[in-house]
Structures are given as C-alpha cells and as structure tokens.
Amino acid sequence: MPSLRNYDLFISHAWKYNEEYYALENLLSSADMFKYRNYSVPIHDPVIDPNTKVGQEKLADLIEAQIRPVQCVLVIAGMYAAHRFWIDKEVAIAQSYNKPIIGVIPKGQLRVPESVKFAAHEMVRWNTDSIISAIRSRAL
C-alpha cells in the first residue's frame, strides 16, 4: 500500500472561541487513513497585545508565517467569525497566497457568515468524511 500523504493545514481560530478549534483538531487527528500537520497556533501569547498597533502587526506577521507553507486553510464558520477582525485577516492572507479555503460549518449551525461563505472554495458540514474529502480534493 502506498504511504499516506501528509497534509499541511492551517485551522483558522479565534482565541476567545477555541472549543470548536480543538474539536476540529481532535476530529482530524482521530480520522483513519489521514495524516496532517497543523501550522496554526491557538494559544494566546501574552507578550503580544492584539489591541495595540505594534501587537496587531506582529500577530499579522506570525499568522502569515503560519499560512505561507500550508496546502489548505480550514475556517470554522461559526457566527462569531462574522465579527472577527482576525478571522478576516487570516482569510485575506490565505487568499493572498492563493491557498484553498474550506469553510467548516459547526454542528447544529444553520447560518453561515457571508464573509466565510464567499471566501471559501468549498463549504462542508461538521462531518469527518466531508472535511477530509474536501481537504484531499482542494489541498495544493
């Protein structure tokens, strides 16, 4: 049997809303016949203050460094994303590098933020097979 491809991913997230991030990470980690490396860093660095101009520039540089090498960006399409400056920033960086964007709709959610829907190359429900299939078909 040929070896599995290892996918390099960035999972978009908000520091205030990281439960879904960890749930998605666990879903991907427990999937059979799927290997990936997660380039996103979900833990807040207290040295960086995202409420200051210098902190915002530093954080934007760090996010860009995390997105640049990946093959695909996953955006959890929680409604908080509609009001999240940083999620929009992550999407813009992904677009600037022509990275495929997959929007993942959380369980039980009926509405999807327009910004995520329009940016995504594909929208999928919170289902292991759907998410992995989208990654396999869209990853660079």
Score class of each variant (00 low, 15 high):
A82D: 13
H44D: 11
L74V: 05
V73F: 09
T52I: 05
L74A: 03
S29C: 12
Q66G: 06
H83S: 11
N26S: 15
Y80S: 05
D32W: 01
A82I: 06
M79C: 01
L62F: 04
D45I: 06
M79S: 02
R68M: 14
I63N: 04
D61P: 00
Y21C: 01
L62S: 11
V47R: 14
A60C: 11
Y22N: 08
S30F: 10
K35V: 14
D49M: 06
N38I: 09
Q71S: 13
V70I: 14
I63C: 02
M79E: 06
Y39V: 00
L27K: 09
D32N: 13
P42Y: 00
N51Y: 13
L59Y: 09
A82P: 01
E25L: 15
S29G: 12
P46T: 12
S40T: 00
Q66L: 06
Y22G: 01
M33C: 13
M79D: 03
N51C: 07
N38R: 13
I43Q: 11
Y36G: 09
E25N: 14
H44M: 15
D45R: 07
A81T: 04
L74P: 07
I43W: 03
S29A: 15
E20Q: 10
A31N: 04
S40Q: 02
T52Q: 09
T52E: 09
M79W: 02
Q66P: 09
E20K: 11
R68W: 05
E19R: 00
A81C: 10
A81K: 00
K35E: 15
P50C: 07
N26I: 08
N38L: 15
E19Q: 06
L24K: 02
Y22K: 08
E57N: 10
M79H: 01
P50N: 06
D32P: 12
P46C: 08
H83F: 13
E64F: 03
Y39L: 04
V54T: 14
P42H: 01
K53Q: 14
S30Y: 10
A82Y: 00
M79L: 12
R37V: 15
K58H: 07
T52D: 08
I43S: 09
L28H: 00
Q71E: 15
M33D: 15
V47Q: 14
K58W: 08
K53A: 11
L24V: 12
P46F: 13
A77L: 04
K53E: 15
V41H: 11
M33W: 07
D61R: 13
L27D: 03
A31F: 09
A82W: 02
C72K: 07
L59K: 08
A77I: 07
A60R: 13
A60S: 14
Q71F: 05
K53S: 14
E19H: 02
I67F: 03
A60Q: 11
A31L: 08
Y39G: 00
K53P: 12
I76S: 01
G78D: 02
K35I: 14
E19T: 10
L59T: 08
C72R: 03
I48R: 06
V70Q: 04
L59M: 12
P46A: 07
I63A: 02
I48W: 06
A77C: 04
